[in-house]
């Protein structure tokens, strides 16, 4: 068990290294830098000055030197300064927004699990019932509607018409604190959280339904029934744990899906998270910020997979020993 986890963590290291090369390489491949186009916008500045700036920022150094400079300071938590936001440090920019995105992602994941798994189980136990058909219909709808469109509808119906939830931001006013701030945050996260989790909820529901149906038809469930186990025991002890195994794998990927989905959803709800920062940085070719966010998202996805693998080995004894 511990050996397995340690081995998984060791595999994590080369993957992290590959990740940094990809992130850096992609940023290099993108045409232009933060200073390109500026001379056209402001013809009064001597192009020579831009060249001096490039030299000062190290943009003219050979690629491997730039990579080394970047990676060695990144390892110490220093991603340099933003080229756009008046030279504020990248870490400072990200820190303020990272927590917001993390909360939103976790909130959305929680909604997904709380809604999708019970409905999936129910659908499997009573296939072709009204609720099963309803859930299937909702599932297709949820997968078919794009995030941003559902977000707009949600704002229109629940914020503008009904006024139940705020349509943007994370807090009503900066003054609130303590428990009020907590509930206020949750209140602000409801619409973006549901929007973000919609496709995931639909997917998990379908998966859960088919997994439970599959397991219910298996030989060991027949054995459990033949031993006289009650229906509850058969469902919660013998079925659920087996049905959850593929769901856990899916959840490893879900973290990546949530974070990339957040880029669009945060934009729709003007939610001050990493997604909005990422989008504006890409628009402004603010590469230090873009690279830092891409790297952090990549690491989160790797961590997500690591957690999924560890959970997997806890639930399924066959994984522990190869």
């Amino acid at each position: 068990m511990y050996k397995y986890i340690i081995r998984r963590i060791l595999v994590f290291i080369p993957m992290l290294f590959a990740l940094t090369i990809i992130v850096f390489g992609l940023a290099q491949l993108a045409p232009g830098d933060a200073l390109s186009g500026k001379s056209l916008a402001d013809p009064n500045v001597d192009p020579e000055i831009y060249e001096q700036q490039r030299e000062a920022l190290g943009l003219n150094d050979p690629i491997y030197v730039q990579y080394w400079n970047w990676i060695s300071s990144a390892a110490q938590g220093d991603f340099g300064n933003s080229l756009i936001f008046n030279g504020r440090s990248v870490m400072e920019l990200i820190e303020a927004r990272f927590a917001n995105t993390l909360y939103l992602g976790l909130f959305s994941l929680a909604i997904t699990i709380i809604v999708a798994i019970p409905i999936g189980i129910y659908s499997a136990r009573k296939p072709y019932s009204m609720l099963d058909y309803g859930a299937t219909g909702f599932g297709f709808l949820g997968l078919a509607i794009p995030n941003f469109f559902f977000g707009l509808i949600a704002i229109y119906v629940f914020s503008i018409n009904l006024g139940w939830f705020p349509s943007q931001g994370t807090l009503s006013s900066p003054g609130v604190s303590g428990f009020d701030a907590f509930t206020d945050r949750i209140h602000h996260m409801v619409l973006p959280g549901i929007t973000l989790g919609l496709a995931g909820t639909a997917t998990y529901m379908r998966y859960m339904r088919s997994e439970v149906l599959d397991v219910l038809g298996s030989d060991y469930i027949r054995t459990a029934k033949a031993k006289g186990m009650s229906e509850r025991n058969v469902l919660y002890k013998h079925t659920l744990r087996n049905a959850l195994i593929p769901i856990i794998t899916l959840m490893g990927f879900e973290i990546g899906v949530l974070l990339s989905g957040a880029v669009i959803t945060e934009q729709v709800f003007q939610y001050p998270g990493l997604g909005t920062l990422f989008l504006s940085s890409v628009m402004n070719r603010d590469f230090p910020v873009v690279m830092a966010i891409a790297l952090i998202l990549g690491i989160l996805i790797l961590i997500g997979n690591l957690i999924a693998d560890i959970l997997y080995s806890i639930v399924d004894p066959r994984i522990r020993y190869d």
């Binding site: 298996s218 030989d219 060991y220 027949r222 054995t223 459990a224 033949a226 031993k227 002890k237 013998h238 744990r241 087996n242 195994i245 639930v315 399924d316 004894p317 066959r318």
Partner: peptide, 17 residues
């Protein structure tokens, strides 16, 4: 009444001892 089945490979629940 107890019962045993044809497929011992799949008749036991894989996730419990």
């Amino acid at each position: 009444i107890a019962m045993i089945f044809q497929e011992p490979m799949t008749a036991l629940n894989p996730v419990y001892t």
